[in-house]
Amino acid sequence: MTDVIRDIAEIDDDRPRDHRPVVREAAQSAYDALFAVPLDDPVPGVGRDLRHLIAARAAWLEGDRSAADWYLARTGGVADAADLAVGGADGAAGVRAGRRLRAALRHVDALVTRPASTTADDLAGLVAAGWSAAEIVVLGQIVGLVSYQVRVAQALRVQDDLFGHEIHEEGSR
């Protein structure tokens, strides 16, 4: 089974998470629920590739290159995905993007960099660009999940740097 957090943390051993297997499973289930988009998805306007692009942008803004790259590798058919993830709505690719995508990228930026200052006007801008309420919720859920994943992955990296040799030695006893 895939473990996205372990993958983006790029560590060999994440035994510190073993004491709460339900939390590990829930984090992976949240990813699966948001990104394993079935053909009959009730929110079809946010396809799998776009969801991964949104996640890559959020990870980039969170400062986690590994997570951004992991999500970018899954953007499939999104043209200029790397440029969109790094430059956002105001980058070279973003300026050429359609209104709907630009609005989504701006929304991701707001949720990551200034979540407390978003307003109803921000949501009205998304609606004006063609996003439905359900689609806007999905965008927010993706940003929230990525934020969580990035924080856990960073903690695992730090633990691996500090205690990695001790963890590996415990496993060999």
Rank of each mutant, 00 (worst) to 15 (best):
A120S: 14
L126E: 06
R102W: 06
R48G: 12
R102Y: 08
Q159R: 10
A92T: 15
L162P: 11
V143I: 12
D40A: 08
G47T: 00
G125E: 11
V150F: 10
A59I: 03
A116C: 11
H52S: 08
A55W: 05
L34M: 01
A155M: 08
L126R: 08
P115A: 11
R114E: 05
L139D: 05
R17H: 02
W60Y: 12
F35V: 06
S132Q: 13
P115I: 08
A67N: 00
V158G: 01
A79P: 00
S29I: 06
A56Y: 05
D32N: 13
G91D: 10
P21D: 06
G45F: 05
A89G: 00
L50W: 00
V86P: 01
G98W: 04
D69T: 00
V143C: 07
G77P: 05
A97V: 04
D69A: 06
I5Q: 06
E135R: 10
R114Q: 14
E135D: 08
A67Q: 01
L145Q: 14
Q141D: 02
W60P: 04
I8G: 04
P16N: 02
A33G: 14
A89V: 06
V86K: 05
L34Y: 04
G88R: 09
T2P: 01
P38F: 09
S29W: 08
V137R: 12
Y148V: 13
T2E: 02
P44Q: 07
T119H: 10
Q28K: 09
V152S: 03
A55P: 01
P44Y: 11
A26G: 12
T119R: 04
I167R: 00
A153V: 08
D12P: 10
D12A: 14
D40G: 11
H19K: 04
Y148C: 06
M1P: 04
G77D: 15
H168G: 13
Y31W: 15
G130W: 06
D161V: 09
R24C: 13
D160F: 07
R15M: 14
R48L: 03
D32F: 05
R24E: 15
D64G: 00
F163Y: 07
L61F: 03
D40Q: 08
Y148D: 01
S172H: 14
S147K: 02
G63F: 11
V86D: 00
A116F: 11
D121V: 00
G76L: 00
A129P: 13
V22P: 03
Q28C: 04
R96T: 05
A155D: 14
A9P: 07
A120M: 13
H52E: 03
S29M: 09
H19G: 11
G130I: 05
L72P: 01
P16V: 10
